[in-house]
């Protein structure tokens, strides 16, 4: 079967695919944003001494981490309206359901990343802040978090890439994200290759734009300025590779 490039380019530049990709990106950004907002206090909280409430929080995080994302999506979309009548109103859209489910799921993963990052900081850092008479909040904001961000950044970016791809699961709750747009196009035309290739291009572009931003951010956050000058960015590396070959 031949590859019909006009179908491929038609799909690539169609508003349906573009809209699908935008839904994918926004869903991933919003879910990760909320996930991070929940995860920072959660990571700080579970790092404290054991208590019944901490076990409970850890238990909830464990369920969110352990349950398949697909199950969580279906649960929020189908089961939540059965428990709470408010979710039966028309404002409860597939996007909102996916946002809630993915945010909670992401919060659980991100909490682990943040907990590990906070744990990686030398206890002497906190001691130095305490000895200078800084408050707990000041120590957290000015000393611990800036250092934890640097440790957590690579795993967080990785997590975001995973999340971006996981948003395709939201097609099962009829959200018109990139993958469901693709499936719909395929279902009516049976031109698998062209539409899948167009979707692939979108996913790759989204992921690699993110990888590029991540490497930029990591470079900016390097403590030692000489190390920042010494390690080339992705673009420089790619150009060097191109020149060599």
């Amino acid at each position: 079967m031949a590859f019909d490039s006009s179908v491929f380019f038609g799909a690539l530049f169609s508003t349906a695919f573009l809209n699908g990709a935008l839904v994918t990106v926004f869903l991933a950004l919003l879910s990760h944003g909320v996930g991070i907002l929940i995860s920072i206090p959660a990571a700080l909280y579970i790092s404290g001494p054991p208590s019944p409430l901490r076990w409970l929080v850890k238990g909830v995080l464990g369920v969110l981490r352990g349950a398949p994302t697909l199950l969580q999506l279906l649960f929020v979309w189908n089961a939540l309206p059965q428990f709470f009548p408010v979710f039966r109103e028309p404002w409860f859209s597939p996007f909102l359901a996916a946002w809630i489910a993915l945010s909670l799921n992401e919060a659980a993963y991100q909490t682990e990343i943040n907990r590990a990052a906070l744990g990686a900081i030398d206890p002497g850092q906190k001691a130095a802040g305490v000895a200078l008479g800084m408050t707990r909040f000041q120590i957290l904001r000015k000393i611990l978090l800036p250092q934890a961000v640097r440790v957590a950044l690579p795993s967080t970016a990785n997590e975001f890439i995973t999340l971006l791809k996981i948003t395709s699961l939201a097609s099962v709750i009829s959200l018109s994200e990139l993958m469901s747009v693709t499936s719909r196009a395929v279902a009516t035309t049976f031109q698998f290759t062209e539409y899948y290739a167009a979707a692939l291009v979108y996913y790759l572009v989204m992921v690699y734009v993110l990888v590029f931003l991540q490497s930029r951010l990591e470079r900016r956050l390097v403590w030692n300025t000489s190390a920042a000058e010494a390690s080339p960015g992705m673009l420089q590396k790619a150009m060097a590779f191109y020149r060599r070959s």
Partner: peptide
């Protein structure tokens, strides 16, 4: 009451100057 530690415990993400001005500015 200031304190100087065995392992210095300087803040690695801040410059020398920023290490010195952080606490006076905050507290």
């Amino acid at each position: 009451v200031g304190m100087v530690f065995q392992n210095f415990n300087l803040f690695p993400h801040l410059t020398i100057l920023e290490n010195c001005i952080l606490a006076p500015m905050m507290t």
